[in-house]
């Protein structure tokens, strides 16, 4: 394989990792409260700026990772408990507008307190080196993003599919009424889904900053939108679908720009949305979902 193609592949996988991490949380939240959460991308921004703060305080990187995960989880739980929970039972459009409002508030508080000036964000020097793998090479940052994401996804799958709380969370997403009748405190399992989903988004923010080198208070928009698209491609409400949708989207975007003549690179989003439309025309319930049962 030529270095060029390999580089594009690694690049697509690392971008896809970020999309997948954000999309998984987006999908978990939709799955359990049927809410298209447009504030989800802003957790990415919160994670990125928290990272900058911890770096300034001199916190070691492994601890920063843990702290950012916790900050994301706390922020997600706070938003759920104070804003989304009181609106439960209201019409779906009410919740949808509430998530837009939360997003706008977060972005504007960010603009006021942090200013709109992009800030430089850099990983430690060794992360910016390249490693030689036979005849090709890749950046440590991209490889770390791919590796850390796989690790986080593995942990997530264990929690969701192998623990009692994870099973209760899936039960709540499957049938809220039955979950309550079994004695599951559904507000707790919902909070848990927000904690996990938002924590992952914040960690994606940490990696986003490192990959692109600059952050600003509005950076959450792109990952939020892409996560939504990844979920739609993969099948809304399924963790596996969101993950695969994220990787597919990241790879497709990068390969489109990288492998076609440079004149086309401006059409990246046109390409992404065309792909979305075609997939939805062919498989309305998403690529990786066998059947969708609408809940009455």
């Amino acid at each position: 394989m030529s270095q060029y193609v390999f580089q594009q592949l690694i690049n697509g996988l690392s971008l896809g990792s970020l999309y997948a991490l954000v999309a998984i949380g987006f999908s978990m939240i939709y799955g359990i409260v049927r809410l298209i959460n447009f504030a989800h991308g802003d957790l990415v921004m919160i994670g990125a700026f928290s990272t900058l703060g911890f770096v300034a305080m001199g916190v070691p990187w492994p601890l920063i990772l843990v702290f950012v995960l916790m900050i994301g989880a706390l922020a997600g739980m706070t938003i759920e408990a104070t804003i989304f929970r009181p609106m439960r039972g209201a019409q779906q459009v009410t919740g949808f507008i509430a998530t837009l409002a939360v997003s706008i508030v977060i972005q504007n508080v960010g603009l006021m307190t942090l200013s709109g000036q992009p800030r430089n964000f850099s990983f430690p020097a060794f992360m910016r080196q390249r490693v030689q793998l036979g005849s090709v090479s890749a950046s440590v940052t991209d490889l770390s993003i791919i590796g850390l994401t796989l690790l986080l996804i593995a942990l997530l799958l264990v929690v969701v599919y192998r623990t009692r709380l994870g099973t209760a969370m899936r039960a709540t997403a499957d049938n809220l009424m039955a979950a309550r009748l079994m004695g599951i405190a559904v507000n707790r399992t919902i909070l848990f889904a927000f904690a996990i989903g938002s924590g992952l988004a914040a960690v994606a923010g940490l990696m986003w900053g490192g990959k692109f080198g600059q952050i600003d208070p509005l950076l959450g928009f792109a990952p939020g939108l892409k996560a939504f698209i990844a979920c739609v491609i993969g099948g809304v409400g399924s963790i596996g679908g969101a993950m695969l949708g994220g990787y597919l989207l990241g790879l497709a975007e990068v390969l489109f720009v990288g492998l076609l003549p440079p004149a086309f690179s401006g059409y990246r989003d046109v390409f992404v949305f065309t792909m979305l439309i075609i997939i939805l025309l062919l498989k309305p319930s998403g690529l990786f979902v066998r059947h969708v049962e609408e809940r009455a």
């Binding site: 039960a171 499957d174 049938n175 039955a178 599951i184």
Partner: peptide
């Protein structure tokens, strides 16, 4: 006080085993 609701309302996406374990959740 435990209810077996109208229309069964089992968890469709959970395995039979997991459905039962949710009965013993508390």
């Amino acid at each position: 006080l435990v209810q077996c609701p109208e229309g069964r309302q089992i968890f469709h996406s959970l395995s039979v085993e997991e459905n039962l374990s949710m009965g013993g959740y508390l």
